[in-house]
């Protein structure tokens, strides 16, 4: 079976009907389920947070069998993930989709665990440091999508676990943990 980067594709990725949106309800539901799982697995392993419906996304076409998903099929599968709370449309036109293989709540828990692991309970960090600082190297937070991180941080702020404040430069915000 072929691979995308180091991601092992399942056998059915070469099954031509997998790439045609099935019209029969039961068959379609099963197909959508399989696409949902594959997209989430792939995004998680490749740390992909954003899928553009109109952009090239490796899963959406299979050159080995010369098949690719139609626009309608892409939107259907992504909408199914959104419906499960594992993704969000970033625009009304459904062109960009934010993939949440961890839900925001789970990301918030990961941030808290990261704070505890590094003894940062009362420290101050910039948002950028959480994403790309030395402490986050090798953790799930490394390279996290800024939008997702900010949503997780805001959730924690509402729970009183931290305070967000404006930094000196406009594109950086500070975090004061108080776990």
């Amino acid at each position: 079976m072929q691979k995308l980067a180091d991601f092992k594709l399942p056998q059915f990725f070469n099954y031509p009907p997998y790439f045609t949106l099935q019209p029969v309800r039961d068959t379609r539901e099963k197909q959508i389920q399989l696409w949902k799982e594959l997209i989430l697995d792939y995004c998680k392993s490749q740390k992909i947070f954003l899928i553009g419906v109109e952009e090239d996304f490796p899963l959406f076409s299979n050159s080995a069998i010369d098949r690719s998903l139609s626009h309608e099929a892409r939107e259907t599968f992504l909408s199914a993930i959104v419906g499960e709370g594992r993704a969000e449309w970033l625009d009304k036109g459904h062109r960009k989709c934010l993939i949440l293989w961890h839900r925001i709540q789970d990301w918030a828990d990961i941030v808290l665990q990261f704070v505890r692991d590094n003894g940062l309970e009362d420290s101050v960090m910039t948002v950028e440091e959480i994403r790309s600082g030395t402490e986050s190297l090798g953790t799930e937070l490394q390279g996290i999508d800024r939008t997702i991180l900010m949503r997780a941080l805001k959730l924690l702020e509402n729970k009183g676990k931290l305070a967000l404040f404006k930094g000196t430069s406009a594109d950086d915000e500070g975090v004061k943990f108080s776990v």
């Binding site: 009907p17 099935q22 099963k30 697995d41």
Partner: peptide, 24 residues
């Protein structure tokens, strides 16, 4: 189940029910 491609409409034996969604 069906396969729509530029070559036209083809039908395949429906394998979807046999695939386990919890372990792809």
């Amino acid at each position: 189940c069906r396969d729509m491609s530029p070559d036209g409409l083809r039908f395949y034996f429906n394998l979807f029910p046999e695939i386990d969604p919890t372990n792809l």
